[in-house]
């Protein structure tokens, strides 16, 4: 009898590169995995370093009010996560402990907090920029990183529930943001070539919810608002988006009231790197032993 081939996820567990938690998409990372993540981030920061005006690191949660303003619940209610907490009195606590002891649902009286789990790394940036008032002439160009959450448990290691995105975000005129996105589409391919990863750029759509979402997706593709850098990781038929290049038109400028000096709403664009996905792609294509990776890849990441 043929032995069933061991999945990529199980190989990662076996080599202790990732550690299983019992929940799909929620894994501990080894020191080696994290080392590759941070080396990739350093590598990424060598591109366009002189263009960045500011850097920010975000916690994995964002203000609930800003989450609401983002419109995320309109388009992706199925992926969102919100933080709830116990806000009761002594007797509520006793009830909670009783539910726990009896294996009943103890979460039903948990109350929403002011925190939502960040669904996309650039969302917490926009309200910060809006509070500063009118943008300067040259707009904003921010490098940022955040843990993100999406409720989509999966056995595909490249589809985690909690993962990090490193992003560059351009806020300014339509011309500034489109030029930014075109530059990064080209840079993304150069980066992938230096990392010796098979890749292709393709027009894409976000996973909008429901039947209406299908129309949103078609519309997004028709307007070529989103491109993805696809790399085979868990499957060759369905390669994984390791980078995305997004033009939001003036949607976020309007939502958060970010203004250009001429008074019009700002346009925004972002390029996002899926840090876990790119790291997994490197392990998938160059092997689970980083010391044995090709010289060209090692020189890009280890210098």
């Amino acid at each position: 009898m043929m032995e069933k081939p061991i999945s990529f996820l199980d190989q990662l567990f076996e080599k202790r590169i990732l550690h299983d938690s019992g929940v799909d998409g929620l894994y501990a990372r080894s020191a080696q995995f994290e080392d590759v993540v941070s080396r990739f981030e350093t590598f990424a920061l060598t591109f366009g370093a002189d263009e960045i005006t500011e850097s920010m690191m975000f916690p994995p949660g964002m203000p609930m009010a800003d989450f609401e303003t983002s419109g995320y619940m309109k388009s992706f209610p199925h992926l969102a996560g919100t933080v709830h907490a116990f806000c009761g009195c002594d007797s509520d606590h006793m009830g909670l402990l009783q539910c726990l002891a009896e294996g009943e649902d103890w979460t039903k009286n948990q109350k929403a907090t002011q925190v939502a789990l960040t669904p996309a790394a650039c969302y917490p940036l926009y309200p910060i920029l809006a509070r500063r008032g009118v943008l300067p002439e040259d707009g904003a160009y921010v490098a940022l990183q955040s843990y993100c959450f999406r409720h989509e448990p999966s056995k595909d290691p490249a589809r985690m529930q909690m993962f990090r995105q490193r992003e560059y975000v351009r806020v300014g005129t339509a011309e500034q943001t489109m030029a930014f996105r075109n530059t990064w589409k080209e840079r993304g391919s150069v980066m992938m070539e230096r990392l010796c990863l098979p890749h292709e750029v393709d027009v894409a759509n976000d996973p909008f919810f429901g039947r209406g979402g299908r129309m949103m997706g078609v519309s997004q593709r028709e307007q070529a608002l989103k491109f993805e850098m696809l790399v085979p990781i868990n499957s060759t038929e369905k390669p994984t988006a390791c980078m995305s290049f997004n033009y939001h038109t003036d949607n976020f400028g309007k939502a958060w009231d970010i203004r250009l000096p001429d008074g019009n709403p700002a346009h925004t664009a972002c390029v996002g790197f899926g840090l876990e996905r790119i790291t997994l792609a490197l392990f998938r294509h160059h092997g689970l032993d980083v010391d044995a990776w090709p010289d060209e890849v090692r020189s890009a990441l280890w210098g």
């Binding site: 419109g71 309109k74 388009s75 039947r211 209406g212 129309m215 949103m216 519309s219």
Partner: peptide
């Protein structure tokens, strides 16, 4: 908007 066109469709 794209979202309003979806509301209209529904």
């Amino acid at each position: 908007s794209s979202f309003a066109s979806v509301q209209l469709m529904l």
